[in-house]
Computed example of a mutant assay.
Amino acid sequence: MNATQVRPTGTERTFGEDEIIVTKTDTRGVLTYANEVFLRISALTEDEAIGQPHSLIRHPDMPRAVFKLLWDTLKERKELFAYVVNLASDGAHYWVLAHVTPSFDAHGKVVGFHSSRRKPEPAAVSAASALYQRLRAEERRHTSTPQALDASWKMLQQTLADREQTYEQFVWELTNGGRT
């Protein structure tokens, strides 16, 4: 499946409160493991998923700035919690509260990444979606990808500064039922 060929249908898919989506990747973000819940929700077979970049499920409504934050955090060998909308292979979308962590070998070397995702609360999705829509609108104002990323990154940083929060604090506020 090529993510550029899949168009969002507007159909939202969900999963159970007690289910966890789990994937593992190598250091380049290529899928090395996907559990049954991931395969079912993303409408992929194991053969279609394993060996593909995790960006296979990237939804076009996800702002580049959030992925920059993710990769910057992982490069620092730290974990990140984030609200993410993903795109299934059949065009459906699904929101998750993702927890992404580096995986280390016995010598402390990063050998990949592990992501566990839970079903988010609707109010948290609504708030994250509103922020992401503003960031994507800013990205669309620019013709080059680097300019779009830079602009949305600055907007994200300014939004968080105005709120006197880090992204992590923003996520936890939403997770714990806070207002935006």
Rank of each mutant, 00 (worst) to 15 (best):
L56W: 08
V22I: 10
R134S: 03
N176E: 14
K24V: 00
S115Y: 06
E164D: 14
A82V: 13
Q133V: 10
P122C: 05
A34H: 05
A65C: 01
R141K: 15
D47I: 09
Y94F: 12
E12V: 01
R40T: 13
K68S: 03
L87H: 08
T4S: 11
A49F: 03
V37N: 14
T9I: 07
Y33E: 11
I50R: 15
A92C: 10
L74A: 10
R141E: 10
P63W: 09
V110S: 06
L31G: 00
A130V: 07
L131T: 12
L56Y: 11
H114P: 00
E173S: 14
R7D: 02
T27P: 02
T23S: 14
N35V: 10
G91W: 01
S42H: 05
H93M: 08
I21C: 05
G178M: 11
E17T: 09
Y167I: 12
I20W: 07
V66S: 03
P120L: 08
V100N: 00
L69T: 03
V171S: 01
S42N: 10
L160E: 01
L74K: 01
D61P: 06
S55F: 12
E168K: 09
A92G: 15
E12D: 05
E168W: 05
G177I: 09
Q147G: 05
R118L: 12
L135W: 10
A3C: 07
N2Q: 14
F113Y: 15
R13S: 11
N176P: 04
K154P: 03
T159S: 09
G91N: 03
W153L: 04
I21F: 06
G51S: 09
T143S: 08
D90P: 02
W95Y: 08
Q157Y: 07
G16F: 07
F104K: 09
D18E: 14
A3W: 10
K154R: 15
T166V: 01
H59R: 01
W95E: 01
E12T: 03
Q5A: 13
K68N: 06
S152W: 12
F15Q: 13
A123Q: 15
H107M: 07
V125K: 06
V110D: 03
Q52I: 00
Y94C: 02
K78I: 08
R7M: 07
S144V: 04
M155K: 14
I21P: 01
Y33L: 13
V110A: 05
A106E: 15
V6M: 00
R58D: 02
R136G: 00
E76G: 04
V66L: 15
T159V: 03
H107F: 13
V84C: 06
T27F: 07
H59C: 03
K78R: 14
R28L: 09
T32Y: 03
W71Y: 06
R7Q: 08
Y83E: 02
P122W: 04
Y94R: 03
A128H: 12
Q147A: 13
R58C: 02
T159L: 02
G178W: 14
R40A: 12
L156H: 12
N2D: 06
D150F: 00
P63K: 10
E173K: 14
R163N: 04
R117S: 01
P122Y: 13
L44M: 11
D47R: 15
A137H: 14
L69S: 02
A151I: 06
N86G: 07
G177D: 05
T25L: 13
F81W: 15
A98P: 07
T4D: 12
V84S: 05
R28H: 13
R13K: 15
T45W: 11
D26E: 04
